[in-house]
Design a binder for these strands. Sequence first.
DNA 1: GAGGGACGCTAGACCGGTTTAGTAGCCCGC
DNA 2: GCGGGCTACTAAACCGGTCTAGCGTCCCTC
Lengths: 350, 350
Amino acid sequence: MAERMPRVGPSRPTITDVAKAAGVSKGAVSFALNGRPGVAEETRARILAVAASLGWTPSHRARALSASRAFSVGMVIARPPELLGADPFYPSFIAGVERTLSDRGQSLVLQVVPDLSVEETSYRRLATAERVDGVFVLDLRLGDPRIALLAELGLPAVTIGRPDVPSNHPALLVDDRPGVTAAVAHLAGLGHRRIAHVSGPLHFLHGSVRRQAWEQALADAGLTAGPCVESDFSAAGGAQATRALLDTDDPPTAIVYGNDLMAIAGLSVAVQLGIRVPDELSITGFDDTELAGYVTPTLTTVRTDPFGWGRAAADALLDLIDGRPGADIPTPPAPLVVRGSTAPPPTRHP
Amino acid sequence: MAERMPRVGPSRPTITDVAKAAGVSKGAVSFALNGRPGVAEETRARILAVAASLGWTPSHRARALSASRAFSVGMVIARPPELLGADPFYPSFIAGVERTLSDRGQSLVLQVVPDLSVEETSYRRLATAERVDGVFVLDLRLGDPRIALLAELGLPAVTIGRPDVPSNHPALLVDDRPGVTAAVAHLAGLGHRRIAHVSGPLHFLHGSVRRQAWEQALADAGLTAGPCVESDFSAAGGAQATRALLDTDDPPTAIVYGNDLMAIAGLSVAVQLGIRVPDELSITGFDDTELAGYVTPTLTTVRTDPFGWGRAAADALLDLIDGRPGADIPTPPAPLVVRGSTAPPPTRHP
DNA sequence: GAGGGACGCTAGACCGGTTTAGTAGCCCGC
DNA sequence: GCGGGCTACTAAACCGGTCTAGCGTCCCTC
């Protein structure tokens, strides 16, 4: 491996060059540039002027080595690539993270791995090579093994959602329950009695929490739990689950989906089966993706804020890394956005 | 800023620790670990054994400083966050990039900026802080200013698509034309004569190239260019453009969209207007996103391979950084996937 | 007028690797 | 028996910053 590129021109000025040009020592330059006391105001101004005229910029690498800091945070996404594209969560979340990071001079190191089998390796690599100062933990799972792994690695972390195993990481408290509860209450209020659910994978905390919220909301409304199909947050899975739900003797009059992608695919299945939405079947999603407002009928769904979560999570992680451990961060409950895909159920015996 | 974290336990072993434990010098350890000649086979084995028993792992930071390499590549995405999520291109592309990078021990530094006004700053920051060894250039624009910027910064780069300004960066030759041509030919073959286009922003190379290909394909089929509406690759834009096209005296019988998202939104608009697809209107997309197969009717579209492009682009960039400049990389033409949204046009005067 | 700070700065260690210059030891040939 | 070349290794410079110890100098104080 050719690790050394041939330097083309005169290389960038270093702090030593600035020191020489200003007639002071390296240390003085470092102090001046970092705004530390111990340098006369006049000297500081001169040093800054020289640095500017030389076009000096700090070397990230040297600072990283010297300060034992990577000035970067990491994120490991373990999803098969074909699933990754369809879900708009990550791009929005990352955009939010970046907003905070660039404000604070840090950067994001992203790792995408195809599945859980290499996930641990990926975290280990980030940690042992000291490429990052901390990580985000997303897509929490039941009894998530990453909590122990991160403790072992001594890597600061912020979880998105509160894990169900003891952890001392600050958590961004994303609670999906109010959204699901609102959706179910909305449907129950319209008169629905058989309200089904198409969930995400139940080993995911968000998959399982949404499912539980659906069940609880039904109980609260005095309804018996309708059928629930565990799916995988994909369009294909949503379509398949919908077919399974509708192809029964006593199909539900409403389906609460774990995310928009499955809901949109389910909507399409209903159309294919000649079931009119929302007249004969009501549908709700979760996420409020852009497309939710542009399908027919438009999709009633729960509006989440991955961008805002990304910002908040990044702030929390950087504070933690800077030695200011914070408490868990609350997020506002996600509101239900009522659109065209929900309506009163058909009267049973017209 | 607290740049130094309190060290909790005994810190990780360094190459010096290994040297001491093995009774040799630092240099010998470095040579042994890097498989260089000049170390007796027996000594090398002993050093490796000691390193392993101490749990030594290389420090990325130290290597970066010493080798004047970041061992990272960068990617700047300039899109408003709300648009970023809807388009599955980037996640898939990044997944492909990562596959190559992790194989080759590099990592990806991602920057997301809300719009073009801060794009230049973002590239400059990556370059001047020497955070990355090279970058990908995506979403090429007409007369793209980044080509000159990267030349000024001396930053190795690989473009996705060939820019229309002179550049000495290797390009991943993504040609959207065959896909669009196939779509138009398919429609013309079905008997369509008025084939419209909803394009992406024309200042983007891919937006403009797809539009030109549509125009050329119409000419090749002996048809006059139908109406074209410039849109923005978003669902909202696609819906609006579709309404504009269909709300005329002589609406097209087919619409070729610049991407799937606009096509799906357009499909929905047609349904709302009571226009049956594909009986009264044929529709084609571009991308073959997951949802394309799960809307009703299923979407005829052009299948692109962002994952494969990511892999190839990353390989090319790393080769370039390693001093092995490569030629432009061809990619196979994107095939048309014929599904349910295209059919012969209605007979004009039944 | 001597002792004691505070200030302003310098010299140099340090982070953890890579890499070059130099040296000891060995075998070889003439 | 001695010069020459090769092998295997050591010592130390280097990458570009941060940070500590220390040293004049000036001013204040008693």
